[in-house]
Computed example of a mutant assay.
Amino acid sequence: MLIGSTETAGQTLQGKVAVVSGSSSGIGAEIGRELASRGAHVVLNYPFLSLGEAADKLAAGFVTDSIAVEADMSTTDGPKRLVDAAVKQFGKIDILVNNAALAVNKPFEEQTLDDWDLLVNLNGRGTFLLTQNTLAHLPKQGSRIVNIVSISAREAPAMQTIYAGSKGMVDSFTKVWAKELPPKYGCTVNAVSPGPTMTEGFAQAGEAFMAEMRPVIEKTPVGSRLGSTAEIAYAVAFLCEPRASWINGAHLMANGGLYID
């Protein structure tokens, strides 16, 4: 169902169509909100029917006509379902943000094949398939692909073997696609790497988890705090702007300098 109101004239992304995977809450929801505020029609995404009401409500609050689509990015057919719904409603995709991901934090010895399948299928294969299905629907010029990676892909923290590895896969995807895809599809391909960010998940993690994270957070040069979802969304939106057309293959660290490459 189409939800929301019409665009405001003069916005920098007016008339663009943006697909944001894993966007019913957290960083993905804020990315959707930021892109909509700049005039884009946003296709939000949620993996389970139980999240549909909240996702529809979120989209209804945007200033542009936007929709929310149920599609599980960890399945082999979920990415195509999301793309098909976006194209059916809006006819094209100008911006793709590969955001859907999960993390598992366990000692290496305790990580299992179920953990492997969960993270690699969503974080790696989901990004692969969603991008692949989107390519045919990109305009001939001016489109954007932004992959949400993580400082874990390069900082390599303990207890994140599979998560860091799966995000490293997306890091490498970005480099390869930035060379291969622009000549054929007229797009740019970039990445944003958040550090610890205050999402619903962080807020519900409890005092013990936050106590464990405190030493990491205190090392952040810009400030001893978690990042905000709005700060990550701004970095993504910057890469989606028309004036960012010469930025390709960049890996933007949006983490207050906690990790500097």
Results as ranks from 00 to 15, higher is better:
residue 72 D to F: 02
residue 13 L to I: 10
residue 167 K to S: 04
residue 148 I to D: 00
residue 149 V to I: 14
residue 197 T to R: 12
residue 160 Q to S: 08
residue 236 V to H: 05
residue 75 T to N: 08
residue 206 G to R: 09
residue 74 S to F: 01
residue 108 F to K: 01
residue 234 Y to R: 15
residue 154 R to V: 15
residue 250 A to E: 09
residue 50 S to G: 15
residue 216 V to M: 11
residue 87 V to L: 11
residue 96 L to K: 01
residue 128 F to H: 13
residue 41 H to N: 13
residue 54 A to R: 15
residue 114 D to E: 13
residue 1 M to D: 14
residue 236 V to D: 12
residue 159 M to G: 00
residue 170 V to D: 10
residue 127 T to D: 03
residue 217 I to H: 05
residue 157 P to K: 09
residue 36 A to S: 15
residue 82 L to M: 12
residue 216 V to D: 04
residue 213 M to G: 09
residue 162 I to Y: 00
residue 13 L to N: 05
residue 258 L to H: 10
residue 27 I to E: 05
residue 195 G to C: 11
residue 136 A to Q: 10
residue 208 A to S: 14
residue 125 R to P: 01
residue 141 Q to M: 05
residue 145 I to F: 03
residue 18 A to L: 10
residue 6 T to S: 12
residue 250 A to H: 10
residue 144 R to K: 15
residue 160 Q to L: 13
residue 101 A to D: 07
residue 178 A to G: 11
residue 52 G to S: 14
residue 106 K to M: 02
residue 94 D to N: 14
residue 96 L to A: 06
residue 168 G to S: 10
residue 206 G to C: 14
residue 254 A to D: 07
residue 200 E to C: 09
residue 28 G to S: 08
residue 235 A to W: 05
residue 139 P to R: 02
residue 95 I to L: 07
residue 165 G to L: 03
residue 203 A to H: 02
residue 159 M to P: 00
residue 181 L to K: 13
residue 2 L to A: 10
residue 111 Q to Y: 00
residue 178 A to Y: 08
residue 207 E to I: 13
residue 52 G to H: 10
residue 234 Y to I: 12
residue 221 P to Y: 11
residue 198 M to H: 11
residue 99 N to V: 07
residue 250 A to P: 01
residue 19 V to A: 09
residue 195 G to M: 03
residue 53 E to G: 03
residue 117 D to C: 00
residue 116 W to D: 00
residue 11 Q to K: 13
residue 202 F to L: 15
residue 226 L to N: 06
residue 7 E to Y: 02
residue 79 P to A: 12
residue 41 H to S: 15
residue 39 G to I: 03
residue 147 N to Y: 01
residue 223 G to Y: 08
residue 192 V to P: 03
residue 172 S to W: 08
residue 153 A to N: 09
residue 190 N to L: 09
residue 225 R to H: 09
residue 180 E to I: 11
residue 257 G to W: 08
residue 6 T to W: 04
residue 214 R to K: 15
residue 41 H to Y: 05
residue 200 E to M: 13
residue 1 M to H: 12
residue 212 E to W: 06
residue 143 S to L: 02
residue 196 P to M: 08
residue 206 G to W: 11
residue 216 V to N: 04
residue 33 R to V: 14
residue 8 T to P: 00
residue 43 V to R: 01
residue 171 D to L: 15
residue 212 E to G: 12
residue 174 T to A: 03
residue 150 S to T: 12
residue 143 S to H: 03
residue 110 E to M: 11
residue 58 L to Q: 12
residue 196 P to A: 12
residue 18 A to K: 06
residue 170 V to G: 08
residue 135 L to Y: 04
residue 108 F to Y: 07
residue 96 L to G: 03
residue 22 G to W: 03
residue 194 P to A: 14
residue 148 I to T: 00
residue 220 T to D: 07
residue 10 G to Q: 05
residue 113 L to S: 02
residue 12 T to Y: 02
residue 191 A to P: 05
residue 252 L to C: 08
residue 10 G to R: 04
residue 40 A to F: 01
residue 68 A to M: 04
residue 116 W to H: 03
residue 160 Q to W: 01
residue 123 N to G: 07
residue 121 N to M: 07
residue 197 T to G: 11
residue 11 Q to D: 07
residue 35 L to Q: 05
residue 20 V to M: 05
residue 52 G to N: 09
residue 11 Q to A: 13
residue 181 L to S: 14
residue 181 L to R: 12
residue 243 R to F: 10
residue 141 Q to F: 02
residue 120 V to I: 15
residue 38 R to E: 13
residue 191 A to W: 03
residue 166 S to Y: 02
residue 213 M to Y: 08
residue 178 A to F: 07
residue 139 P to V: 04
residue 160 Q to D: 04
